[in-house]
């Protein structure tokens, strides 16, 4: 499996943003679009997700991926230096890497060429230390059971699991994509019955958002 870096960048507009003239806000958004255009061959943007109404800590989240972390970081720094960057805070930022899972390849949906869905549900998580000390066969059975539950919701729910070990506070970063929030609720509810939940230590924050193209998504706040 070809490894790629992923970045989920959660942004919140400062109160200063709403005090700016509409014209200046439009120019600032267009500057961000130009930055992404200049990284077109280096950094992919899976989507821009408007979080309004789901969580108060975040306004919009960008989901990026690329072969080199440097490119993703440089792009984010360019945003910070831009006019737009003056008016945002980043309450959360998560970097991950695509790798085969322990018991199967389990590629991300974007890696196998699935188109983005209307909604995203992202959360990072950590398993308990006890989980990693279980015998391999038991971990395999737990993950298999978890996967079987999730498979019931395919293709309504796309899954994207990446490694976060050492790149941040979390071990795993999981993104669901769906066109149907009702199915998402059913899926997450059903996954609560998986025995692997006994070994879940922390799984927050949840960030849920509606998919937009970049300019359209950022313009929702203009």
């Amino acid at each position: 499996m070809q490894e790629q870096f992923t970045a989920h960048l959660a942004m919140k507009f400062t109160p200063e943003w709403s005090r700016q003239e509409k014209k200046e806000k439009i120019t600032a958004v267009q500057e961000v679009v130009s930055i992404f255009d200049s990284y077109e061959d280096k950094v992919g943007l899976r989507g821009t997700y408007v979080v309004q109404g789901f969580q108060g800590h975040t306004d919009v989240m960008l989901w990026m991926f690329g072969d080199r972390f440097e490119d993703i970081q440089d792009l984010q720094l360019a945003i910070r230096r831009s006019t737009f960057g003056k008016y945002i805070e980043t309450p959360h930022a998560f970097t991950g890497i695509t790798k085969p899972f322990e018991f199967s390849e389990h590629p991300t949906s974007f890696a196998v060429g699935m188109v983005p869905r209307r909604y995203l549900c992202f959360y990072p998580f950590i398993r308990t230390p006890e989980y990693y000390l279980l015998p391999k066969w038991e971990r395999k059975a737990l993950i298999g059971d978890h996967g079987d539950i999730g498979h019931e919701f395919v293709p309504d729910i796309l899954t994207n699991g990446v490694y976060g070990f050492g790149l941040g506070d979390y071990e795993w970063l999981l993104t669901f994509e769906t066109n149907d929030l009702g199915r998402l609720v059913d899926c997450v509810r059903k996954l609560r019955e998986s025995k692997s939940r006994l070994y879940m230590q922390d799984e927050h924050p949840f960030i849920v958002g509606r998919y937009f193209e970049l300019e359209d998504g950022l313009s929702q706040y203009v």
Binding site: M1, P100, S104, E105, H106, P107, S109, V112, G113, M114, G147, H151, V154, P155, L158
Partner: peptide
């Protein structure tokens, strides 16, 4: 793609 092919990669590497 996601129901069939993905099931191969859900079982193996």
């Amino acid at each position: 793609r996601f129901k069939y092919l993905q099931s191969v990669f859900n079982k193996t590497h």
